[in-house]
Computed example of a mutant assay.
Amino acid sequence: MDANTVLMMISDKIPSQSLIFVQEKLKNSSEDKINTIVTLNFKSHIIGLILGLFFGLYGIDRFYKGDITLGIVKLITFIIGTITTFIYIGFIILIGLWIWTIVDYFLVWKGIKKDNLKKNFNCIGINIF
């Protein structure tokens, strides 16, 4: 496969501002590295968003992205907030968690694309991050 075809295949999976840089690096890469990029398992930012919308309070979006520690923290925060709602502090915890979940919609969306870009560069042999 040529570099332009691979770039078209991965263009929606990496940050748009990186496309020119990736195109330049792909043109200078060997055929083997380009073919390896095609076989990489990139995560979908859309699936990350859907998981965040439906299961974000439980940290499932973070687990999918690969941020296991933050996923566990979100899950524990949800459990503690739910348990302590009878003394009203739980409501404050859950409101904070709800705000964190809304912010995570954007962070996970961009983070998955950035992780895919990092995976792409590691495959090519560029350690930029």
Rank of each mutant, 00 (worst) to 15 (best):
N4W: 00
V6R: 02
V6C: 03
L7N: 03
L7Q: 08
M9T: 11
M9L: 12
M9K: 14
I10H: 08
K13G: 06
K13V: 02
I14Y: 02
S16E: 13
S18N: 10
S18L: 05
I20R: 13
F21E: 12
F21K: 14
F21M: 12
F21Y: 15
V22C: 07
E24G: 13
L26W: 04
L26S: 01
L26A: 06
K27C: 11
K27Y: 05
N28G: 10
E31K: 12
E31V: 08
D32Q: 09
D32L: 04
D32P: 00
K33A: 11
I34P: 00
I34Q: 01
I34H: 04
N35F: 09
N35K: 12
N35H: 08
T36P: 07
T36I: 08
T36M: 15
V38M: 11
T39L: 14
L40M: 09
N41T: 05
F42W: 02
F42T: 01
K43R: 06
K43L: 05
H45Q: 08
H45I: 00
H45P: 05
I46K: 15
I46N: 15
I47L: 13
G48A: 02
I50M: 07
G52A: 03
L53G: 04
F55R: 07
F55C: 09
F55G: 02
L57Q: 05
Y58F: 13
G59P: 08
I60C: 00
R62V: 01
R62Y: 04
F63G: 07
Y64M: 02
Y64V: 01
Y64A: 07
Y64F: 09
I68C: 00
T69M: 01
G71Q: 00
I72Q: 11
I72G: 07
V73E: 12
K74R: 05
K74Q: 13
L75Y: 05
I76G: 04
I76F: 14
T77G: 11
I79H: 03
I79C: 03
I80Y: 05
G81V: 02
T82N: 07
T84K: 03
T85S: 09
T85I: 14
I87W: 13
I87V: 15
Y88K: 13
I89L: 03
G90M: 06
I92M: 06
I93T: 14
I93F: 13
I95C: 10
G96R: 13
L97S: 09
I99T: 00
I102H: 08
D104N: 13
L107S: 13
L107K: 14
V108Y: 04
V108A: 04
V108M: 05
W109Y: 15
W109K: 14
W109S: 12
G111L: 01
I112L: 00
K113A: 07
D115Y: 06
D115P: 10
N116T: 08
L117G: 07
L117P: 05
L117R: 06
L117T: 06
K118D: 07
K118N: 08
K119D: 12
N120W: 13
N120L: 14
F121W: 06
F121C: 04
N122Y: 15
C123A: 12
I124G: 11
I124Y: 12
I126F: 15
I126P: 07
N127T: 04
N127Y: 01
N127I: 01
I128C: 08
I128T: 10
F129T: 14
F129K: 14
